[in-house]
């Protein structure tokens, strides 16, 4: 087996482990421990972090897998997060290659945008199917976004550590 292929496999294993750790934290630890009275969303942050350090293709694949896990952790048969996080991985990965500088600042902005999008998507069914007024849902959406953002930097630096060890990081400027 060539060294390049070995490194490629190693980077996939590292990414899978990274995702698994974040999944366990989200679905098993923080499903019972509330932060600011809500459960934080960690997998979308992991997707932004991974996509920002790699490219659109890897970001999309990572987003797809993370989205499936996210739907599983929500006990939801819907494919809301599967679609959402795949798209986020694709867009963030593409933006990181063409539009934005890869650093902590852009990462934080990307995280905030994706978390707001996730909260909006989660609110959608309550608004459309059950007729709950949006203002009543806003406090929960805001707290969920803030509680999740608390974990963005630890996840980001953990991902950078994993990526530095496995070698999937490229083009980092910050």
């Amino acid at each position: 087996m060539s060294k390049l292929r070995k490194n490629y496999i190693f980077s996939i294993i590292a990414a899978a482990l990274f995702m698994l750790i974040v999944f366990v934290l989200q679905s098993m630890v923080f499903s019972r421990i509330l932060i600011l009275g809500v459960r934080p969303l960690l997998l979308p942050i992991a997707v932004v972090s991974y996509a920002l350090l790699t490219d659109e293709m890897k970001g999309a694949v990572f987003g797809l897998a993370a989205g499936i896990l996210c739907d599983v952790s929500m006990n939801s048969p819907a494919i809301l997060f599967t679609l959402l996080l795949t798209a986020c991985g694709l867009i963030v990965g593409r933006a990181a290659q063409t539009l934005v500088v890869r650093n902590v600042f852009t990462f934080m902005i990307g995280c905030a945008a994706v978390l707001v999008l996730c909260a909006g998507a989660q609110m959608f069914s309550l608004v459309m199917l059950q007729g709950v007024p949006v203002p009543r849902l806003m406090p929960t959406a805001l707290r969920q976004t803030l509680a999740s953002l608390i974990f963005s930097l630890p996840i980001y630096y953990f991902n950078r550590l994993v990526s530095a060890v496995s070698g999937f990081e490229r083009g980092y400027n910050g």
């Binding site: 679905s27 969303l41 929500m74 006990n75």
Partner: peptide, 13 residues
């Protein structure tokens, strides 16, 4: 064996 991670629903497995 597990609880939902959602803030918008209440369920468990």
């Amino acid at each position: 064996i597990s609880w939902t991670s959602s803030n918008w629903a209440s369920s468990f497995t």
